[in-house]
Amino acid sequence: MNRNLTSQQKNAVLLSMAQLIAAEKAVIIKANKIDVESYRGEDIAMYDRLKVDEEKIEGMILSLQQLIADVDPVGKDLFHFTHENGLKITNKSAPFGTVLIIYESRPDVTVEAAGIAFKSGNKILLKGGKESLNSNLKIVNLWHKALIENNISTNWVEYLNYNRAKIQVFLENPTQKVDLIVPRGGEKLIAFVKQHATCPVIVSGRGNNFIYVDIEANLNLALKVILNAKTAKISACNAVDKVIINSNLIAKETFIKKLINKLLKFNVEILGDVELSAFENVSSFDSDEIWFKEFLDYKIVIGTVNSSEEAIAKINKYGGGHSAVIITKNDKTANTFMESVDSAAVYQNASTRFTDGGEFGLGGELAISTDKLHHRGPMGLQHLVTNKWYIYGDGQIR
């Protein structure tokens, strides 16, 4: 397998893949229909991620087109130094080598992740969930066609059709070199991978995102943002699960009643702290442990705090390190909040739903990392590289 493909070769494969997906759209949807009809679970987030329709097909094609247009991340000069003895020292970006992604549902990841890995010079091992097997195998077959059309080895994209026991054995004793693993799914999947992996793991962690409504919030804006963040796509890790409201907010009671009514129109189950559970249609909860939970469902927790400092502390204690929002007209308050909250993405006056590789201009994403090494937040094309040192001399010794 030639590890040194040119940008032109890589783009040619991506273009072939985009054309094949467009041509085979009906076949992909037909394969996906088998998966959807076979799914017996009651997890509505899983079902939403599993289903492939015309819109998702268009999203797959768009992600490939964006990758083609993006700059090749490999071989980029990062640092130069000339030693006093004449050595010329350069640091350049380089591929990891082989990346394994383990994911649940989401057949679109089979396109997006493989595209990002391939353009960044990495071989990818794909391990999708059994619920999306037919969809994934069809898409991998198209990847192989795209590679063959361009006289490039199909080894660049490999699907691991393993059950849980077999993938555990592979994680503990890989039958080929694996340089990086990205688990993309629920907390049980992430814990399983971290427990058994023998190489570095980048965690695409839970959301459990917070919105804080400050004392100086535009309340109409707050309603719009909360409703979008909660209800637009409940299966997304960038959906909001928790809202905290400043107790000193003017017209607080009116605002809370409006928020409750709007959420009820979307059949959102509302849980509240002691103050909020006094409102009609809000249930109380037994334990503060609920503040830790990611719902991926039509469910939300609302509470109050006495200050932005208290809001920051609560988010840093309970949040998933993914996304956090402050709704305020006060830029100074917002800046303090954004610098103090320990999340990969922090917002002023906008929905958490924008934490996404495509929305951030990355041309799709491999995952959204809630780790801090080696990257944090949406991982796009430019982030799936490591670095390598090149030293040029003429006989220097130390």
Score class of each variant (00 low, 15 high):
Phe81Thr: 01
Val169Thr: 14
Gln9His: 14
Ala222Pro: 04
Glu149Gln: 15
Glu365Trp: 05
Phe255Glu: 10
Ala334Phe: 10
Ser247Phe: 06
Met379Cys: 11
Ala232Arg: 11
Lys127Met: 08
Leu264Met: 12
Val213Gly: 11
Gln176His: 06
Thr386His: 06
Leu160Arg: 04
Ala23His: 12
Asn163Ala: 08
Leu189Phe: 02
Glu37Leu: 14
Asn151Gln: 14
Lys258Asn: 15
Tyr392Ser: 15
Val27Phe: 11
Gly207Asn: 04
Glu365Ile: 06
Gly121Ala: 00
Arg106Glu: 09
Ile312Asp: 05
Asp342Met: 04
Val225Gln: 03
Ser38Lys: 13
Tyr212Val: 03
Thr231Asn: 14
Ile300Ala: 09
Asn208His: 07
His80Ala: 03
Asn161Phe: 01
Val71Asp: 15
Ile167Lys: 02
Leu221Met: 14
Ala12Met: 06
Val282His: 10
Glu55Ser: 11
Glu37Tyr: 04
Trp291Lys: 13
Thr154Tyr: 03
Ala22Asp: 13
Thr154Ser: 15
His374Gln: 04
Asn208Cys: 07
Asp214Gln: 02
Leu227Tyr: 14
Ser93Met: 06
Ile397Ser: 13
Leu259His: 10
Lys138Cys: 14
Phe170Asn: 02
Trp156Met: 01
Val140Arg: 03
Asn218Tyr: 05
His374Trp: 01
Phe170Cys: 00
Val305Trp: 05
Val71Gly: 00
Asn122Phe: 04
Val213Glu: 09
Glu187Pro: 12
Asp43Ala: 08
Val201Pro: 13
Asn246Gln: 09
Leu271Pro: 07
Val27His: 15
Ser135Lys: 02
Phe279Tyr: 15
Leu259Asp: 10
Leu271Phe: 15
Gly272Cys: 10
Glu104Ile: 09
Glu55Gln: 13
Ala18Phe: 05
Tyr392Leu: 12
Leu219Thr: 12
Thr6Gly: 08
Ile245Thr: 03
Val13Cys: 08
Pro73Met: 03
Pro200Ala: 09
Ser340Ala: 14
Asn2Thr: 05
Glu187Ile: 12
Lys230Glu: 06
Gly380Tyr: 07
Trp156His: 11
Gly115Ala: 09
Thr352Gln: 02
Gly319Asp: 08
Asp286Gly: 15
Val268Trp: 03
Tyr298Gln: 13
Ile397His: 12
Ala23Arg: 11
Ile181Cys: 05
Ile29Phe: 02
Lys262Asn: 15
Lys88Arg: 13
Val99Asn: 09
Ser340Arg: 08
Ser369Asp: 06
Ser105Met: 04
Glu55Phe: 08
Val203Thr: 15
Ala45Val: 04
Arg184Pro: 11
Asn11Met: 06
Pro200Tyr: 07
Ile181Trp: 02
Ile250Thr: 15
Ser105Gly: 08
Tyr298Cys: 14
Leu384Gln: 09
Lys194Val: 04
Leu276Gly: 10
Glu24Pro: 00
Lys123Val: 12
Val178Met: 07
Asn150Cys: 09
Val111Tyr: 05
Arg353Ser: 07
Asn349Gln: 03
Asp70Val: 00
Lys257Gly: 00
Asn91Asp: 08
Ala23Gly: 01
Ile300Met: 11
Ile226Trp: 06
Ile101Gly: 01
